[in-house]
């Protein structure tokens, strides 16, 4: 039955995530929280691998989450669940291509949808930053999320310094900022090993 649940969760993700791969992140975070299949840290690792392997990021993440939950059948079911709504919606839109683009209500709905999708990714960004760079944790618990402090340190300085350096490299340094994300992922992995980021 876990496969049916997996299909349904990813069907919803494919249907409501607007704006490509990264837009599925808030949904995947929500699935992890409500089912307990994987933690937020697991999801971060999956995202890193998805960015560094060929294929669309959204599909890579769906495959990875599915594999984590139920092996190869899980990977297959999660991916098919995510693309099913796309196939249905696009086949319908293709049949009415001209009227779809000209319909004022479609444009009006997307006027609100686009900033909402960005807001959801922004919120995921906030909780990722807190989770990885500080000891503060936001966890789903009842209707209002619970904020707690875990670990010995409130601010993790090595992580914060690396984040600041990467922010500058990926945005402000000409030529370097145009490099593929995989370069920065490898760099961060090397720094993590050199300075024992996990304390291991």
């Amino acid at each position: 039955m876990i496969l049916l649940r997996l299909y349904w969760e990813f069907f919803k993700t494919g249907l409501f995530a607007v704006g490509g791969g990264m837009a599925t992140l808030p949904f995947l975070k929500n699935i992890g929280e409500t089912t307990g299949w994987y933690t937020y840290a697991d999801l971060m690792n999956m995202l890193a691998v998805s960015e560094s392997t060929p294929g669309p990021i959204g599909i890579n993440m769906a495959t990875y989450v599915g594999f984590t939950v139920a092996g190869v059948p899980g990977a297959l079911v999660a991916t098919l669940g995510e693309v099913t709504p796309s196939i249905i919606v696009i086949l319908i839109v293709a049949a009415f291509l001209r009227s779809f683009r000209a319909n004022p209500w479609v444009e009006r709905a997307f006027y609100g949808l686009r900033p909402a999708s960005t807001g959801l990714i922004g919120a995921a960004c906030v909780s990722v930053f807190l989770e990885v760079l500080t000891g503060i944790r936001i966890a789903g618990d009842g209707f209002v999320n619970r904020v707690s402090v875990s670990g010995e340190h409130l601010l993790l300085w090595p992580q914060l310094l690396l984040a600041a350096a990467l922010l500058v490299l990926t945005n402000a340094v000409p030529k370097v900022r145009d490099l593929h994300p995989i370069v920065f992922i490898v760099l961060a992995a090397a720094v993590g090993i050199a300075f024992r980021f996990a304390g291991a």
Binding site: A48, I121, C125, F129, Q159, I185, A188, F195, A198
Partner: peptide, 24 residues
């Protein structure tokens, strides 16, 4: 070493999500 590497990679993922948010 793998656990340390992923702890470093997670920091990079933070920055990548932040950049994607700004672009959107």
């Amino acid at each position: 070493a793998v656990r340390n590497a992923f702890a470093g990679i997670q920091v990079c993922v933070c920055v990548l999500i932040f950049n994607a948010t700004v672009k959107l």
